[in-house]
C-alpha cells in the first residue's frame, strides 16, 4: 500500500540522497532489485557493493548514484521508520515507487505532484485528506485540492 503525505511532515527526510550516503549498507547495493533499479534509472551497472559502472561518468562510487536511485533504495531497505521525500525522485522513478509499495506498506512525502500517469494499477492513500484514490486522475484531482506542498 502506498501512502502519500503532501508538504512538511514529522519524521521526514527532506534530502534522502545525503541520508543514504551516511546510512547505506553494502548488501543493499548488490540486491537484485537494486541492480535492476540502477540499470533502469541510472543506466549503470552494479559491479560490486562499492563500484558502479556509469556510461556517462565512468567507474563511480555508490555515493555518485543519482539522488532518485538512492531514494528508491532507502524506500526499499531502510526500516528506521523515516519518511523519504520522493520529490528527490524524477518521474522515471514513479513506477519503482509503485512497485516497492506493492511489496510493502510504503509512506512517501511529496513536495510536488509526482506524475504516476504511466504506472498501471496506480492507487494510493492520501494522508492529508484521509482518502483513497484508485487512479491517476483521482490522485491528481485530490492533490489539486491540497494546498500543502
Amino acid at each position: 500500500m502506498l501512502r502519500i503525505v503532501f508538504g512538511d511532515t514529522q519524521n521526514a527526510i527532506y534530502h534522502p540522497p545525503t541520508y543514504f550516503d551516511n546510512t547505506y549498507l553494502d548488501e543493499w547495493i548488490t540486491d537484485p532489485r537494486t541492480i535492476e533499479m540502477v540499470k533502469d534509472v541510472d543506466q549503470s551497472e552494479v559491479i560490486s557493493a562499492r563500484a558502479i559502472d556509469s556510461p556517462f561518468l565512468g567507474s563511480i562510487s555508490v555515493k555518485e548514484l543519482s539522488g532518485g536511485v538512492k531514494t528508491l533504495i532507502l524506500m526499499l531497505f531502510d526500516d528506521s521508520g523515516k519518511i523519504f521525500n520522493a520529490s528527490a525522485c524524477g518521474d522515471n522513478c514513479a513506477k519503482w515507487i509503485v512497485q516497492i509499495a506493492s511489496e510493502k506498506d510504503l509512506t512517501i512525502n511529496l513536495h510536488h505532484i509526482m506524475d504516476f500517469s504511466t504506472c498501471n494499477g496506480f492507487s494510493a492513500y492520501i494522508v492529508n485528506t484521509g482518502r483513497y484514490v484508485g487512479s491517476f486522475i483521482e490522485y491528481l484531482d485530490e492533490a489539486f485540492r491540497i494546498e500543502e506542498r
Binding site: D42, L57, S66, G67, V69, C89, G90, D91, N92
Partner: peptide, 10 residues
C-alpha cells in the same frame, strides 16, 4: 528539473 540521473547534481 526533470528525470533522475540526467546530471543536475553533477
Amino acid at each position: 528539473k526533470g528525470d533522475s540521473a540526467t546530471g543536475k547534481t553533477t
